[in-house]
Simulated scan of single mutants.
Amino acid sequence: MGVARCLALGLLLAGCVPATGPATDPATAAATVSQGYTLIGQKDYAKAKTTLQSAQPFRTGDRRALMGLAVASDMTGDFRTADRAYKELLLRETDRAMLFNNMAYSYMLRGDYARASAYLAEARRHDAANVTIANNAAMLERVAPLQ
């Protein structure tokens, strides 16, 4: 057992570190992520972002929390956090079509239509029949007709 793990185990046993919480209790973490998605549905993106961050998705690797955090971050203009979440998602098995679609939308929000177009093309490659991807492609054509 490594030194860091032994130290962490010792702190846990000594009562210095809580045994459960949003990041360690699966039921609590799932409820937190669900609440974040509810807030996204209500268009309360700032609160959704805070809620999803409390699930510690960068530490846990929770794909659903990472995707929600990316979306909420995009919608609040925090593209740095969105990019970090998308980068993590690219490293994990996830729905590639929707990941690339969401990345395309992120770049549309930034006005980077060339990147948005490239990500939409990749999204279409993964799911050519997806209506959401088609709608975002149509929106991109309207906002960047010369691209």
Rank of each mutant, 00 (worst) to 15 (best):
A72L: 02
L90E: 15
S117D: 14
K87F: 14
E122V: 06
V143C: 06
Q35G: 01
E88D: 12
F58M: 04
A31Y: 09
R63F: 00
M67F: 01
T76R: 05
Y105G: 03
T51A: 01
M1I: 12
S34Q: 14
D83G: 11
M67R: 04
L90S: 08
L52P: 02
T20W: 12
A31G: 09
G41R: 02
R64T: 05
Q147F: 03
L146H: 12
L90N: 10
T28V: 13
L7S: 09
E122K: 11
N136Y: 08
A46K: 07
V143M: 12
A114K: 11
D83H: 15
P145T: 06
R124H: 06
S73V: 02
G15A: 05
G21E: 09
V17K: 07
A137M: 09
N136L: 09
M98D: 10
L11K: 13
D83A: 12
E122N: 01
C6I: 15
M139G: 00
M103P: 04
A85M: 10
A121W: 01
L13T: 08
P18S: 10
V3G: 00
A46T: 07
K49V: 00
R142P: 03
A138F: 06
G36Y: 04
T132M: 12
L66M: 02
I133M: 06
F100I: 07
R92I: 11
T38W: 04
T28Q: 15
C16E: 15
A144Y: 09
T132E: 13
A19I: 11
D78T: 06
D95T: 04
R63M: 00
A128C: 00
A82C: 10
E122W: 02
A72D: 02
M103W: 07
D127G: 00
M103H: 08
A14P: 08
T24K: 09
M75W: 05
A19C: 08
D78P: 06
A31D: 13
A55G: 03
G61C: 03
A55W: 03
R92L: 15
S73D: 01
L39G: 01
G77V: 07
L9E: 15
I40A: 00
R59V: 10
R92K: 15
T28M: 15
G10A: 13
I40K: 01
N135C: 02
A19M: 09
R115W: 04
N101E: 10
M108E: 12
A129D: 14
Q56E: 08
Y119L: 03
T51P: 02
